[in-house]
Design a protein around this nucleic acid. Structure first.
Lengths: 132, 132
DNA sequence: TCTATTGTAAACCATATGGTTAAATAACTT
DNA sequence: AAGTTATTTAACCATATGGTTTACAATAGA
């Protein structure tokens, strides 16, 4: 099905738009860096930043829509945790260009070896949360 | 100098903001994909897109500011060519997170081997568990 | 020189983004 | 029940973004 392939590309573009736009803000990258060290509550996440908690809350929602974080609500506390999957999609997009700095194809192969089963992508189920 | 390090980080953030924002648009990614196959004039770059040449020209300027393309002006013709360097910066930023999907450090080392001379900090930390 | 081609600049528009404050909701504590 | 804490929603604001059309500048070709 050609149509499927085309729609697939559009979906990819939608995903990449969402992910890259989420990453294209230093506050959100900083939030992500903090969350990569472990889950945290929103109040704690907001504390180091020189902006209102509401602003941070909005940033987190952008990250959440891009699936870069997951939210676990316990009572009134929202626990956020880092999710790596979207970064793999960025990585996969970069694969198209990596040849430009690796120069040689066999250096590229190093990388492909890790991706070869997920590139056709039936099930990308990688979980990086260290929470439980 | 500590101040130098801090400024350095801010500069990185500026660069990443610029680069990731440039990449966070499907038209610009498509332009980049086309240019990765070889240099092209602006008119030819614009032709496949369903928007004015002016719009494409603006997109190209965004890519140029991020140094993702270079422009070679010959007479009235602007020849654009792909520049990979900023993508390496994205790659380097991703290094901090690659451990989340490689899991093991030696898979990561494959990657670092290529970066060791171009990066100021060749050791990304590996913290996957809940911290404080 | 006149005209067509290549591209930018300017002015404009609608919507998105990143921030604010104030109010609302929900869940713990006392 | 009353108050405090955690977070979102709503309303608002300034600026950025992605697009348009029209006008301009510069080069190339007749």
């Amino acid at each position: 099905m050609l149509a499927r392939a085309l729609i697939g590309e559009e979906v990819d573009d939608d995903r990449l738009d969402l992910i890259l736009r989420a990453l294209a803000d230093r506050t959100r990258r900083a939030l992500l860096a903090r969350l990569a060290e472990g889950p945290a509550r929103i109040t704690d996440l907001a504390e180091p930043f020189d902006m209102s908690l509401v602003a941070v809350s909005k940033h987190l929602k952008v990250l959440e829509r891009a699936e870069l974080i997951e939210r676990d609500i316990e009572g009134r506390v929202h626990q956020c945790s880092f999710q790596a999957a979207p970064l793999r999609e960025v990585e996969r997009w970069l694969d198209h260009y990596r040849v430009f700095w690796h120069g040689t194809l066999d250096a590229l192969a190093n990388h492909v070896e890790d991706e070869h089963d997920s590139s056709t992508e039936p099930k990308p189920e990688e979980n990086a949360d260290g929470g439980e």
